[in-house]
Design a protein around this nucleic acid. Sequence first.
DNA 1: GCTGGGAGAGGCTTA
DNA 2: TAAGCCTTTCCCAGC
Lengths: 253, 253
Amino acid sequence: MKLEQVREKILNSLKNQTMCLVVGNCFVSYTGRASSKLPRGKRLLMIKADSSVSIHENRLVRPTNYMTSAKTSCELTEVDLKKGKELLIISKNKAKEILEIIFYSVDDIKVYDLPMSNDLRLSGSEKELNDALMDDLEFLEPGLKPINQQQVFRTGVCDIIAEDKDGKLVVIELKRRQADYGAVTQLKRYVEQVEKLKNIKTRGILLAPDIRKSAMELLKSYGLEYYSYDFEVGERSKIKGIGKSQQKITDIF
Amino acid sequence: MKLEQVREKILNSLKNQTMCLVVGNCFVSYTGRASSKLPRGKRLLMIKADSSVSIHENRLVRPTNYMTSAKTSCELTEVDLKKGKELLIISKNKAKEILEIIFYSVDDIKVYDLPMSNDLRLSGSEKELNDALMDDLEFLEPGLKPINQQQVFRTGVCDIIAEDKDGKLVVIELKRRQADYGAVTQLKRYVEQVEKLKNIKTRGILLAPDIRKSAMELLKSYGLEYYSYDFEVGERSKIKGIGKSQQKITDIF
DNA sequence: GCTGGGAGAGGCTTA
DNA sequence: TAAGCCTTTCCCAGC
C-alpha cells in the first residue's frame, strides 16, 4: 500500500475525528518520562478522535507504546513522507513527551466512524459501596452514627467519619479489594489528622473484603481495627455481611 | 456483513493466533471484580493472540472493557450465533470474571498476522537508575559504601542498603518520579525492618526527582532524609545531579 | 495546574 | 499461588 495514500487517510481521519487503524512494519521511539525504542516489526497503530495514540503488539491488553490525551492533551504534529519511502508520524504533548513512529511499509489502513462516547455504566465502585455503608452504619457496629462523608483533609479525603455508642470519633476507610500497606497507612494518616484537629483520641476502622497478612500486623501495631465484609456486584452493589477481624461472616441477612 | 461469516473469522483467528479486529454495533456486559454494562453502540473489539480482549471507544488509550490474559489467563468460551441475528462472544478467566459481548451488526472484521513479540526496549526504569546509583554511591554522599541491593524483606524489597562514613547503616529508597506518601511509608518500613534485624539505629534516605509537600512533612516527622536528583533519559539513563532536601542542584558535573 | 487516590488498575518478579 | 511493587501507570475529581 502506497505510503502517500496512508498519509492522506491519516490526515483525513484526524480532521473527521474518526478512528484510524494502521497495520504495518514500523519502528517506534519514545522520549518523555522514560525513553524507549521498539525495533522494526509489524504492529497495529490506533489513532483515536482525541488524538490519543496506541501501538499494539499481538499480546496483552496494554499497548507497548502510547500517548495519552487525558491529562496532557497530545497532538499529532507531523505526518510526513521522508525520503519518499518512510512515513514519519510524530505525537507530542504538553509535558514535552515525544512519540515517533516510522512506517516502512503498510499492510492495511482502516478508518472507522465511531462516536466519541463515554457511556460505560460501572457498578461496584468504592463510592457506591461507601454510600451503601453510609446508609446503614449500624450494620457495621451498633450505635455507630454517621457524621461526615468524604471529609477533605489536607492529606487526602477521608471516607467516613462517625461517632460510636460511647461518643468516640471513628474514622472509617473503606476498600473494595484486599487491603494493603497503603490502606493501613492511609487510615493512620486520617486518624492522626482527626486527633490533631479535634484533640481527642479517635478510633480507626479499616473495612475491606480481605487484608494482607503483613498489612494486618501493621494495622494492629498502629492500634487500628479491621472488619472484613462481603459485597455483591450488580445493578446496585450491596454489602452482604460483616465480620470482625479475621473472621469473615457471610450472609448475615 | 453476515454474522455467521464474522463468527467463522473469529474462530479461525483464534486458531491461527492472529489479531482480530471487529467493528460494529454491540452491547457489553462485565461481571467480576465489579460489574458494568456498556449500552448498544458502535465500537472496536480487539482480540489478541493470547486471547486477551479489549473493547475500545473512540477516545482515551485505555479500553472501556477488557479481559486481561497476563495474571488470570482468559479464554473465549463462546462465539455463537443467537436467534440467528446476534453474535454472542463470552470470555472468562480463572478468577471467574465474565465478559459478554453481543454484536447486533458488524461493519467490518479484519484479521492481521502479527507476531506475539515483546520487544520493547525501555530505559529510564527505576531498576536502571538503581544500578547507576549503585555504581557510585559516593556521588550521593561522601563515604557512602554499598552493602546490598534489592535486599528482600518480609515486607518488601529494599532498593539499596549502604554504610555511611561513620559506619552507620543507611537504607535508600529510590523513586523515578515525584515521591508520595507511599514512598515515605515504604522507606519507613524498610528502616524499621533493618533496625529490628540488626538492632541498631539506621538512617533512611529517600531519593527522588521531587517530593510532594505533605510527603515531605511525613518524612521529616519520621526522621528520614530526602535528596532530590535529576536524571536524563536516553540509551542509558544517567543520574545528573543531587541536592540535599528541597534544594535541587542540577548538573554538578 | 497540582494533589490525592481509585482502578475491574495491568503486568512483572520473587518467595 | 500470594505478596510486593513499579508503571511513560491511566484517569478523574477537587481545589
